[in-house]
């Protein structure tokens, strides 16, 4: 994907539950290789917006285009979801080892087990969890779980990374580590990152295009 191409295009999207609007976006484009941050207090609709971009919440109004296609017009959401990865605020880890969790996305794409294990091990090294590959994922601390989920997302080398409050449940040390991993992903790989955070300091340190969610409206370029 060339830089500057709008990989995501939100056209007057209105999201909500039971016909009650939670978020209205207006027209917003997300260019390839960019870093975009949704900021705003808890409960303002950041998660709703990210989940909609990942195809889980259908807009009450408007369209969400991914690479030129309205994702809710697609009969099969697997191809776009294999190009983007969503990381939830409280990531769910499967009942298996840390390595098994990181291998999951590679295995469902048809990668053979030895190659997937090698790639997953390298991803765990990258996030600083190299020594935890064989551990039961359910025994990890909040920060370790978040890093495992980040490794699970990064190993897939997605074109777009949707991160929901990636430092919401982690301590200061792991926040720094996650921050540097996000910066590294932005700088080196041309990946488009859209993340939400209520932490103004974190948003400021990351840079990128900040969009504030205020009174149910997305205000770009704040």
């Amino acid at each position: 994907m060339r830089a500057g191409y709008p990989i995501f295009d939100l056209r007057d999207v209105a999201l909500g539950y039971n016909d009650r609007f939670v978020v209205e976006t207006g027209r917003v484009e997300f260019e390839c290789g960019g870093l975009y941050l949704f900021t705003g207090p808890n409960g303002c609709g950041k998660t709703t917006l990210l989940r909609a971009m990942n195809g889980f919440i259908k807009p009450l109004r408007g369209k969400i285009y991914f690479d030129g296609k309205d994702i809710f017009e697609l009969t099969d959401l697997v191809p776009p979801r294999r190009r983007m990865t969503y990381l939830a605020q409280k990531p769910v880890l499967f009942r298996t080892t840390v390595l098994g969790n990181v291998m999951f996305g590679l295995r469902v794409r048809g990668m053979r087990k030895p190659e997937a294990a090698r790639a997953a091990a390298a991803a765990l090294e990258k996030v600083g969890l190299g020594g935890m590959a064989g551990r039961n994922a359910r025994t990890l601390s909040g920060g370790e779980a978040q890093l495992t989920a980040l490794a699970r997302a990064l190993v897939l080398e997605p074109e777009v990374l949707l991160l929901d409050e990636p430092t919401g449940n982690v301590d200061v040390g792991n926040t720094d580590r996650i921050e540097s991993l996000i910066k590294e992903a932005c700088d080196g790989s041309g990946i488009t990152i859209v993340l939400s955070t209520h932490n103004a300091g974190f948003a400021e340190r990351l840079g990128g295009t900040v969009m504030r969610l205020e009174n149910g409206r997305l205000i770009p370029g704040v």
């Binding site: 990942n54 889980f56 959401l77 697997v78 979801r81 294999r82 990865t85 969503y86 990381l87 939830a88 990531p91 769910v92 499967f94 999951f104 996305g105 469902v108 794409r109 699970r152 997302a153 897939l156």
Partner: peptide, 19 residues
């Protein structure tokens, strides 16, 4: 969220059911 997590990681519906 287990099913949803599997889907976000690119699983097909049957693979998500397997998860």
């Amino acid at each position: 969220e287990v099913r949803e997590t599997a889907l976000t990681l690119g699983a097909k519906p049957l693979q998500a059911a397997g998860a």
